[in-house]
Design a binder for these strands. Structure first.
Lengths: 144, 144
DNA sequence: GCAAAGATGCCATTCATTTGCAACTGGATG
DNA sequence: CATCCAGTTGCAAATGAATGGCATCTTTGC
């Protein structure tokens, strides 16, 4: 388990490469993603977007997230009991620890766990396409 | 990783113990759960219930699942891209491998992974309340 | 058996997300 | 730089899962 790097993708380049238009709403949204280090949901991204350009609609946020996801530029996480939350792709693969009290998301990584998952799948005759490992926990009060 | 035992809870006893009524719809629903070895969603349970008693409503299925869940008699799983699916509690803890082609759910268990999860959470200053580990995969064709 | 608390069925509602559609606009072309 | 039009957008209505309100029924304690 260790820290996770996070180089940001060049979204505009990716959009052009995907052959879709680089529109004003899309620029605003990817700009927000670039500046975000948290895991906002669609509504939160919408709010941040409206602060920059008040004509942007929530539909467009949803459509853009779906587009970026299909391009592999972002990851969607459906943590339990809430809307999907998004994060930029491009960093190393990692899993998530969700703070049940604050909703904060902490990233972690364990090669050992990944390896064990592969072994399990192989033993069952399966190939893992992707996986989801989420720890839901509370901060330990170390002394008081 | 190994097979998972599955002793079925005595739902009617549990209901009485919880101080709620053992009604006709509830009997039908827990009867279905007792006979199920899969991971049906609410609609599927509803269909099976209606086949036995056509007056049962989907609302009651949802209410009953929620009730059983709060009693700890069943577990709810929100696998990606679909409605919640349910399984009886009472077996050992286990995680899930979801067959992306069929939707089949295979249960597995790894003490080693659980242990690593605990270590990770501890290192981050957290106590795990619960976790979710899902592998999404496809069957390997071993020869043809 | 009876009454009252609890459950049910039905329907409307919520919440997250998607879709239909007319109006708009990137960006390739001339 | 004007034109054009497929790709996009905003809006509103639709969807799908799940919940809530409420009048009516039904367990269960007496």
């Amino acid at each position: 388990m260790n820290a996770v790097s996070n180089r940001k993708p060049d979204y505009e380049r990716l959009l052009r490469k995907a052959g879709v238009r680089v529109t004003r709403p899309r620029k605003v949204i990817v700009g927000i993603l670039t500046q975000s280090d948290d895991h906002p949901d669609a509504l939160e991204i919408f709010k941040r977007a409206v602060a920059i350009d008040k004509t942007i609609s929530l539909s467009t946020v949803y459509r853009t997230m779906k587009l970026l996801e299909s391009m592999g530029a972002i990851h969607r996480h459906a943590f339990e009991g809430g809307p999907s939350r998004f994060e930029q792709a491009g960093g190393d693969h990692h899993d998530h620890l969700i703070d049940l009290d604050t909703g904060d998301v902490i990233e972690f990584k364990s090669d050992r766990i990944e390896q064990l998952q592969d072994e399990i799948a192989r033993a069952l005759g399966y190939e893992i396409i992707h996986h989801r490992l989420e720890l839901y926990g509370r901060k330990k009060k170390s002394s008081g």
